[in-house]
Design a protein around this nucleic acid. Sequence first.
DNA 1: GCGACTTCCGTTAACGTTTACGGTTCTGGA
DNA 2: TCCAGAACCGTAAACGTTAACGGAAGTCGC
Lengths: 373, 373
Amino acid sequence: MGKPPTTLRDIAKALGTSIGSVHRALHDNPGVSPLTKERVLLMARTLGYRPNLAARYLSSKKTLRISVITLQGTTSFWDEVRTGIRQAAGSIPLENVELDFRTHPRLGEGDEEAFESAINDNVDGILTFASRPQVLRSWIRRASRAKIPVVCVATDAPGSGRLGIVGIDTLASGSIAADLMGRFHGTREGSIAITLFDMGITEHAEKCAAFESTLASFYPNLQLLKPIEDHDVEMESYNKCRKLFEKFPNLSGVYVTTEASIPVLNAARDAKVLDRLTIITTDLFPDLIPHIRSGAVAATIYQRPRAQGQIAFRMLHEFLVEGASRSHQVALAPHLVMRGNLDFFLHRQSQDSFKEKVHEAQEPAHGLAEDFA
Amino acid sequence: MGKPPTTLRDIAKALGTSIGSVHRALHDNPGVSPLTKERVLLMARTLGYRPNLAARYLSSKKTLRISVITLQGTTSFWDEVRTGIRQAAGSIPLENVELDFRTHPRLGEGDEEAFESAINDNVDGILTFASRPQVLRSWIRRASRAKIPVVCVATDAPGSGRLGIVGIDTLASGSIAADLMGRFHGTREGSIAITLFDMGITEHAEKCAAFESTLASFYPNLQLLKPIEDHDVEMESYNKCRKLFEKFPNLSGVYVTTEASIPVLNAARDAKVLDRLTIITTDLFPDLIPHIRSGAVAATIYQRPRAQGQIAFRMLHEFLVEGASRSHQVALAPHLVMRGNLDFFLHRQSQDSFKEKVHEAQEPAHGLAEDFA
DNA sequence: GCGACTTCCGTTAACGTTTACGGTTCTGGA
DNA sequence: TCCAGAACCGTAAACGTTAACGGAAGTCGC
């Protein structure tokens, strides 16, 4: 059924040339004439040549260096992303990967420098958070020109030449938030607010649009107010919300699409409207937990940072190893966290780098695992 | 920072013996004395020997044969699981895996035969659906004794010696269903029904318990009725539900934990209680779609069959290749599907076995979706 | 016409493991 | 005493790729 795969030797033999020339041609290394190069490329294609990765790795054993340029962050989101990257890097069978974390403290502080040093170090690939697409775009483009593939996590930098993007599906997030808001609220009239970082961020605009669209389609009794932009500044968020609650005393729900949910909750508490509001937030971090348990936050939409990190790494690695990756845009389904299943997610987060953890000793001896240490 | 990894030659040299003996010792092949074997094992441990997988694969290039013993199924669930397995098998870099699907038509029909033939064929590993744990337990045990690792998908077979299990977290599923039911329903009194396959199935009992517990903790206004067992028989489900609706006219919600949601919906329609009920179902398949769109089904808890298949395959493969896998029990977080985000999941399902050759032009409108832990 | 250089190409030794094959030495039985 | 067989062990050839080396032409300057 399976004919043996074609090798470099096969191509060489078919062309009456040598392995060395074939190898040079396929890697467009110098030292091969344009004619033979073309003939090799053609023959490789017709014979359906696929490089044997095991042999390649065994022979060259050069290590891939991947630079991870991310934000420190105010919540645990980016820590989780980095953990996911580390996990994925640790679980590839042929471990020849070296991770190089360049974490900058604040938004727009040190990201450009990190990019510059990564490019100068001539790393093999970059995983990054494109916090400021408009600024980072040129850096990503510069990396691409230097043949360094870049994969964005969480936020896209469209038109930058980046290899790919992995993030949470904005449509699914915004829609599910709207559906929950609508169902939780019932059929009476009411108005809903939404907070986001900045309408200039594609992801946030899309989430907002999806939320609005679903709300309009299925819950016409709910009216969406003009979005509030907080720019990830606590005071801005708090003050704008205080003003909002005063201006719309009949407000019945808030959808917080950013990490800055605590200021919103504080504002609601201080305005004494907390128990009248249905609040849906985004992500999951320690400070938010008591608010979920108390029921103040009805639900939170978990953006699966660890999964994002894992998949981003896999995408980059696949490209570096195979020369092409399967899908360059990955949109994950968000998870929904509420009071009842909160512990499940907390438990999952806590099994951190313990991947080697000994699992419940109820079934100890399997007998198969006795291969070698 | 990185000293070169130890090789067979290193061990041999350190012991003054030969590569051949070291190899035989590490694989407990015949032809090595107990003494040298012990010394090799010790030295391998102290030198921290890890086999070089690239070299191993390059040299042996034997193909792993994995048998997939699953149900045909009445919905697309198991098709999706199999698709996930295929995808995962296709995406491993060193492709030396041969999948062998043994699909039996009905529950408890042909599963034992499939196991027997798989064991007789001496496959390298088995992925299976332990539909009837009590019956299959002995078969799994038999496979384990034949050194064939078995990974269960969706349903566990505890105490069978299986290598591992991947499924949806029952606590998260039951709890989120209860939370939604409670929030959707509001604060007025009401009673809720739950349908399941059989209380004998661990997963179903656990889901039921989680549902009950969350309901009792946070929504004491809702009263849970005695569970209905449908045994995956349509008529049984329909009839029991009809009787239920007659007996409890003030019923306000149903949580369907099995695939058999259509009979429940039909019964509710025929009993003319459909619009009074909050119905939460499980999984996502074509027949269910119109009911979600119409709002008859408020939400459905998607069990991510494709992700289950992918992860189960990975677990088995990792064990077969590396000799030990990281975690033998994987509990996935379920996804929540409602009207608004339904299209996202449908779109994702439809990108089936395409995965090959998606050399996208520039930036397609909507991202490709991938499923993952 | 002779070295020095360029351009192209063939050969070959790694990489670490598996596997088959030939050797030892040792045992038991005739 | 000698042979057959077992039990143990060393050697070497694969596997497919990479990278380095050396050789064969051909080109240029003197």
